[in-house]
Design a protein around this nucleic acid. Structure first.
Length: 205
DNA sequence: CGGCCGATCCACT
DNA sequence: GTGGATCGGCCGA
C-alpha cells in the first residue's frame, strides 16, 4: 500500500494532448504537473504560466526563420522538449506541439513547487520563498534541473507532464513577455492561472 | 512598486 | 559583430 504524499499520482498526458496548435495546448497545460529527475533529484511542480509560439508564421518564434541546429527539437513529434540557452546564463523549456514538422511550442514560464522542494532550493539559492523557486522561465528550468542535456528529450523517465485530475483552473490571457515590438508582441498568447502566487503581481494581467 | 542596468554566452547574420 | 522567449540588485518615488 502506497503511503500518503499529499500529491495525487499524476497520470502521463497522452501524446495526442500535444498534437494541436500551441495556442490550444497552452491553456490546457495550466494546472498540469511537470516532473523531472529520479530518486533524490525528483521534483514536481504545478504549471501556472505559459506562452504559445505558433510555428513558422509566428515572428516571435525561434522557428520563424526556419530550421537551425538550435531549434531542431521544435520540429520533432508532439511532446518533445525544446530547451534553449539565452542571455548567456539561462535555460528555457518548451513542450513541442502539433504534428512533427510543425514547429509549434509552449514555453513554460512559471510553476508552483509540489514535491522535491529541497532539491529545487539547492538549485535556486537566491529564491526567498517557495513560490519564487519556479517564477519565470529561467528560474523554472533551473529549479527543475532542465538544461541542454534535455533538449530534444521525449517524455519518459527523465521528465514528464501529467494530469492530477484537478478541476481546470481559472485562466487569464495576456500578451507575451519579452518580445521586441513587431515580433508578435501584440498577440494574446500568454496564459496564467488567476491568483497563483508564482505569477508575479505586476505580470498577472 | 517600477525602471534601469550589468552579467555572460552563443547562434545566427 | 549583434542582440536575445532573463534575472536580480540597486535606485528613486
Amino acid at each position: 500500500m502506497a503511503h500518503r504524499t499529499g500529491v495525487r499520482a499524476p497520470s502521463r498526458l497522452a501524446a495526442a494532448f500535444f498534437d494541436r496548435d500551441a495556442a490550444l495546448v497552452a491553456p490546457d497545460l495550466l494546472g498540469a504537473l511537470i516532473s523531472t529527475g529520479t530518486g533524490e533529484q525528483r521534483a514536481t511542480a504545478r504549471i501556472v504560466e505559459v506562452e504559445a509560439y505558433r510555428g513558422a508564421d509566428d515572428p516571435g518564434s525561434h522557428a520563424f526563420r526556419g530550421r537551425t541546429p538550435r531549434n531542431a527539437a521544435m520540429f520533432g513529434p508532439p511532446g518533445t522538449l525544446y530547451v534553449y540557452f539565452v542571455y548567456g546564463m539561462h535555460f528555457c523549456a518548451n513542450v513541442v506541439c502539433g504534428p512533427a514538422g510543425t514547429p509549434h511550442a509552449v514555453l513554460l514560464r512559471a510553476a508552483e513547487p509540489r514535491s522535491g522542494v529541497d532539491v529545487m532550493r539547492t538549485r535556486r539559492r537566491s529564491a526567498r520563498r517557495d513560490h519564487d523557486l519556479l517564477r519565470g522561465p529561467g528560474n523554472l528550468a533551473a529549479a527543475l534541473g532542465i538544461d541542454r542535456d534535455l533538449d530534444g528529450a521525449r517524455p519518459g523517465r527523465r521528465w514528464s507532464i501529467g494530469d492530477d485530475g484537478s478541476p481546470a483552473p481559472e485562466v487569464r490571457v495576456t500578451t507575451r513577455i519579452g518580445l521586441a515590438a513587431g515580433r508578435g508582441d501584440d498577440l494574446e498568447l500568454r496564459f496564467v492561472v488567476v491568483g497563483s502566487p508564482a505569477v508575479s503581481r505586476s505580470r498577472a494581467g
